[in-house]
């Protein structure tokens, strides 16, 4: 008697339609190399979008992720260079990147929960702070890694699939389980749906909310490693610029409600890929780079409008 709820699958259907159109529009689209490229390009924002899904479901938002990525990236490469050659330095730097990301996330979370500042405002402030610290520390100059092994991390392949894609997809599976099959995930949905009811249900609302920011920070750390190792350098002014927009857009396109309370990881993965394909198609079709933002904006609007219709 229960009917299939099609609206739940809207992002997946959109993806399938998009792939079909793209395949018809350009013969290059379905080439293995192109697909692998698209996936690698989206994995940097995609990894962060996984963490952001938790923050948004919990009822928050994190605008600082792009700047945070630059700051973590610069610090990580500096640490790497300070430690020296070899895999040991690389492993240490990766650990440091994740820890730094989590720490910056903790700072965001603490301002929001302890300081009772709205997430939008708090992370708008830290977005500015992180970027400015990045420029200061690096003296606005590119920081280049001297470690010979480091480029293999983000630039390497495993079974002909780029490493960042593996990281993105594995994290997606872990985060899916975290969201749907653990008490923590259940509590994140609860506090985003109704914080008062959650508090009355003996849920540590602030702690849970804080942790979502820490998780997002950690994903920023991972993304920073992937990006800086592939490029073998970090450019303090450009790294992660406007990432917050792509990340939030992907989460929303994936069906997660900006009002909090509901969302899925697989939706976010699809949202990330949809954005990537759109970018890729516009490139393949030779559309002006200046117009790509317009297309992206329209896609976000359609996704949000579709959600709005559902809740009516």
């Amino acid at each position: 008697m229960s009917k299939i709820d099609w609206s739940k699958y809207a992002p997946l259907i959109a993806l399938i339609v998009l792939v079909a159109i793209s395949a018809m529009a350009s013969e290059h689209f379905l080439a293995a190399r192109n697909i692998s490229n698209v996936l690698r390009q989206v994995s940097y924002t995609g990894i962060i979008a996984l963490g952001m899904t938790f923050v948004i479901i919990a009822g928050g938002i994190d605008l600082s992720v792009g700047s945070m990525l630059a700051l973590v990236g610069v610090l990580t490469v500096m640490i790497l260079n300070a430690v020296g050659e070899g895999w040991f330095a690389v492993v240490l730097a990766i650990g440091a990147a994740i820890a730094l990301g989590a720490l910056f996330g903790l700072i965001n979370g603490a301002i929001v929960t302890k300081g009772r500042v709205a997430a939008f405002i708090a992370t708008l402030a830290t977005m500015s702070i992180f970027r400015s610290l990045t420029l200061y520390i690096s003296d606005a100059g590119e920081i280049v890694s001297t470690n010979q092994k480091y480029p293999d991390v983000g630039g390497g392949y495993f079974l002909s699939v780029p490493n960042p894609v593996w990281v993105f997809l594995s994290l997606a599976i872990i985060f899916h389980i975290l969201l749907n099959h653990t008490a923590f995930g259940r509590h994140v949905c609860a506090i985003g749906s109704n914080a008062t009811v959650s508090a009355y249900s003996a849920i540590k609302v602030k702690t849970i909310y804080l942790i979502t920011f820490v998780i997002t920070g950690a994903t920023v750390g991972i993304s920073a490693v992937m990006l800086s190792s592939r490029l073998n350098s970090v450019s303090p002014g450009d790294a992660g610029l406007f990432y917050e927009l792509d990340v939030i857009a992907a989460v929303v396109i994936g069906g997660t409600s900006l009002a909090g309370g509901k969302g899925t990881i697989w939706g976010t993965v699809i949202g990330v890929i949809i954005l990537g394909i759109i970018n890729n198609m516009l490139n393949l079709l030779g559309v002006s780079a200046y117009l790509q933002g317009t297309v992206k904006g329209l896609v976000i609007l359609v996704a949000v409008l579709a959600q709005y219709k559902q809740t009516r």
Partner: peptide, 14 residues
């Protein structure tokens, strides 16, 4: 058990 089941008791979209 609160007197306000919708405001303090239940998560309506769960």
């Amino acid at each position: 058990l609160s007197e306000d089941r919708q405001g303090k008791g239940l998560i309506l979209n769960f």
